[in-house]
């Protein structure tokens, strides 16, 4: 399966929602602590080497996350360490990019998510404790959601309701928001340690998962959030990201500081489906293709991006 070696440390990888062979990768120099960042656009191809870089954009600070526009097949949004949010058009040459840059967050922007239902707006989560709502044609953010007491690591849209999103924070809470409401609509103290990531189930708009420094993943039903539906143990260190499968109701993927990527079925007792140990440093980015069932991608501090089919060995070429 294809492997791409980046010059910097990997932070995030995302499949294009328009082209099954296209991915974007966010990377940062010196483990994202100090230095530049780069966004790679990768193209999968049938023969060897299997993956090639079609374009790259350099940034002055680390790139922590990237997402594809749901409305324009060539447009990318990037979350940058210096607090900026930048928009790139891969149809234009690098010198004409970025096409927009928004400097509003006071600290590192850690995640970005494009609205999949309304397709006109996106969310950014930042270490300045806020989440911001943006639209491509507006000169500034539409709204700032400021309730969390510590870094917000991820904000993610509900797959059905175009006005609802969830945010995961280092203040140990998960919050649910409706952009039409003045404040958050629900606060779930989901873990006793920092929550690093969250995601909605693509088949049940009331179910979501959180991952935490406490090494667990918890699955929640917002209709009865007193106790989690499931607690998934198995990672040896903080779980950096969790992601529901776009194809299978019960399946989810996670990656962790323990350097592994895991697949889980949260409905069965023996939840761990498989564990991949192909990364040799912290695994921090994971995605599952919407267009090809079972196609997965991961990246980590070992500067490698792996793309593989579920059930196969990511290292087998």
């Amino acid at each position: 399966m294809p492997v791409f070696k980046a010059p910097f440390n990997g932070y995030s990888v995302k499949f294009s929602p328009f082209y099954e062979s296209r991915l974007a990768v966010a990377t940062a120099q010196n483990f994202g602590i100090l230095g530049n960042g780069r966004i790679h656009v990768l193209e999968l191809s049938p023969g060897a080497p299997g993956v090639t870089e079609s374009m790259a954009f350099d940034t002055a600070d680390a790139v922590y996350d990237v997402c594809w526009s749901e409305s324009h097949d060539s447009v990318l949004v990037a979350a940058i360490g210096d607090g900026s949010v930048k928009i790139y058009d891969t149809a234009l040459p690098p010198p004409s990019n970025p096409i927009r840059s928004f400097q509003e967050h006071a600290r590192e922007v850690h995640s970005v998510d494009y609205n999949p239902t309304r397709r006109d707006s996106f969310l950014t989560a930042s270490w300045d404790d806020t989440v911001k709502l943006w639209a491509m044609d507006r000169p500034a953010s539409i709204r700032t959601f400021k309730e969390h007491a510590y870094c917000v690591y991820q904000a993610i849209w509900n797959p059905k309701h175009g006005d609802v999103f969830a945010s995961a924070s280092g203040d140990c809470t998960l919050r649910i928001w409706d952009v039409r409401e003045p404040g958050s609509t629900m606060i779930i103290p989901a873990h006793d340690f920092e929550i690093l990531s969250c995601d909605w189930n693509k088949y049940d708009d009331c179910i979501l998962a959180t991952s935490s420094v406490d090494k667990t993943i918890k699955v929640w039903d917002v209709r009865s959030y007193r106790v989690p539906l499931a607690v998934l143990n198995g990672h040896g260190y903080a779980v950096r990201k969790v992601k529901f499968s776009p194809h299978r109701r019960n399946l989810m993927a996670s990656c962790s500081y323990d350097m592994t990527v895991c697949l889980w079925d949260y409905m069965v007792e023996d939840a761990l489906v498989s564990r991949y140990d192909h990364h040799t440093e912290f695994a921090v980015g994971i995605d599952m293709s919407v267009l090809v069932e079972g196609l997965m991608a991961s990246t980590g501090w070992d500067e490698l991006v792996y793309i593989w089919q579920q059930g196969m060995d990511p290292r087998a070429s």
């Binding site: 680390a62 360490g81 270490w127 870094c151 920092e194 420094v213 090494k215 903080a238 500081y257």
Partner: peptide, 17 residues
């Protein structure tokens, strides 16, 4: 500095005791 903040943040992720 931001570098110190980032280092401290990642470090805190690794300390779950």
């Amino acid at each position: 500095s931001p570098a110190q903040r980032r280092l401290e943040t990642v470090r805190s992720h690794l300390d779950s005791s």
